[in-house]
Simulated scan of single mutants.
Amino acid sequence: MTVIVRDLHPGADADIEGFVRVRHAALPYVYFSRASVLHHLALTPAAAHYRALVAEEDGEVVGTAQVGLAHDSPEPGQGWLNVYVDPARARRGAGTLLVRAAEEHLAAHGATKLFAWVLDEPGHRAFAERHGYRASRSAHFLVLDLKHTELPPPQKPPTGVELRTAADFADDPRPLFTLDAETNSDEPGDIAIEFTDYEAWIAEYWKHPHLDRELTSVAVADGRPVAFSVAHTDGAARYGTGMTGTVRDHRGRGLAKLVKNDSLHRARAAGYTQAHTSNDSDNGPMLAVNRWFGYEIRATEVRYVRELG
């Protein structure tokens, strides 16, 4: 039985279905769909040199990798690779071949420092360390039973603040771009992010197929968005928070709780039963907010780093 690694073929249904199946088997805390896989292939900016790879054994997709450069970081030469193998087909060489192909691609495009998320389990961590990666920070996947958990009562906005949705900005989302740029720049992480390209943000984030603009809650003060909780949904039962953040000059007013509580209540009313999110382990304030809602940590990932040459 021979394992080969190649690019995912966007026109091949078996490739897309195999990619999604493997990801959900290996990483059930993150939702993928045919639309989201094709979205990343088509709309990730060219500067990222993004590739989606599959490992194939006997005509079946058994492993996946997403690979790219951190194009929205002010520090050049940073690349990332996230490799996942079907747990039922592990230890047959697929992971090693995917890592090798990913590293070669990134090195060819000038990457000198590579980052990879690895599940915090002995086998996964040992695999990363055998390939020359060292452990860095960690992040948690959290889940809330939205159907049976009693949410905090809906909150009244403080004086001078009103609640709106992302759908209210459909004609001109630039104010949300400005909000996203500031809040993301303060997120803890190994790779600093700067959103400076509005059109790239529109393509990659505003047009993401899972973005639910109606359930994305926005706090507006002095005529501008100052906090938001970004909602991604599967159109059925699963609701996820992509980002919750507040601009610096409005922090300490409880606006993160306000917008997230508003979004969660409306998501439950719309029939969503599972709420997912993730937090960097060093993001104490947001972890405290999520514990207040009743989220529980279900798994942890560790960021691994490798310097090239």
Results as ranks from 00 to 15, higher is better:
72 D>T: 11
153 P>M: 04
304 Y>L: 03
184 N>C: 14
161 V>C: 03
114 L>P: 10
11 G>E: 03
246 T>E: 07
201 W>S: 04
112 T>K: 14
149 T>R: 15
11 G>R: 01
190 D>G: 03
98 L>Q: 07
304 Y>R: 01
293 F>C: 07
178 T>S: 12
204 E>H: 07
201 W>H: 01
165 T>M: 06
162 E>H: 09
22 V>G: 00
116 A>R: 05
218 V>K: 01
287 L>V: 02
31 Y>E: 14
285 P>S: 06
281 S>P: 01
303 R>S: 01
43 L>F: 14
264 L>T: 05
227 A>N: 12
212 D>K: 07
142 L>F: 05
69 L>I: 12
44 T>K: 06
65 A>G: 00
128 A>D: 09
291 R>P: 02
34 R>T: 12
9 H>C: 10
19 F>G: 02
172 D>P: 04
299 A>S: 15
240 G>T: 03
227 A>G: 08
125 R>K: 14
37 V>S: 01
84 Y>A: 15
73 S>F: 11
133 Y>V: 02
279 N>A: 02
18 G>K: 00
105 H>A: 13
98 L>W: 05
103 E>T: 08
165 T>G: 04
185 S>M: 05
118 V>F: 04
251 R>N: 00
223 G>L: 08
274 Q>T: 14
182 E>I: 01
24 H>M: 07
20 V>H: 07
25 A>S: 01
306 R>I: 06
258 L>H: 04
41 L>Q: 04
47 A>D: 05
116 A>S: 15
118 V>S: 04
222 D>V: 10
36 S>V: 11
200 A>Q: 10
111 A>S: 10
93 G>W: 09
229 S>D: 04
170 A>I: 04
7 D>H: 09
132 G>Q: 09
100 R>K: 13
237 A>L: 13
249 D>A: 13
151 L>V: 07
17 E>R: 12
90 A>P: 05
43 L>S: 10
256 A>V: 05
187 E>R: 10
8 L>M: 02
196 T>F: 03
16 I>R: 03
120 D>Q: 12
4 I>A: 15
12 A>W: 06
70 A>G: 15
260 K>A: 07
282 D>Q: 10
300 T>Q: 10
180 D>Y: 10
211 L>R: 08
93 G>Y: 10
25 A>C: 01
159 T>K: 11
180 D>G: 08
130 R>K: 15
283 N>L: 00
268 R>L: 06
78 Q>Y: 12
25 A>L: 05
263 S>W: 04
274 Q>E: 14
186 D>A: 13
230 V>S: 07
95 G>E: 06
209 P>C: 14
167 A>D: 04
161 V>N: 04
95 G>A: 09
101 A>S: 07
78 Q>S: 11
116 A>T: 12
52 A>H: 11
303 R>I: 13
273 T>S: 14
2 T>G: 10
166 A>H: 01
22 V>H: 03
66 Q>S: 15
255 L>N: 06
170 A>K: 05
76 P>E: 04
37 V>L: 00
49 H>K: 13
168 D>Y: 01
19 F>W: 12
47 A>Q: 13
82 N>G: 13
232 H>A: 09
166 A>G: 03
69 L>G: 05
62 V>T: 08
287 L>I: 07
281 S>V: 06
261 N>Q: 11
105 H>W: 14
56 E>C: 07
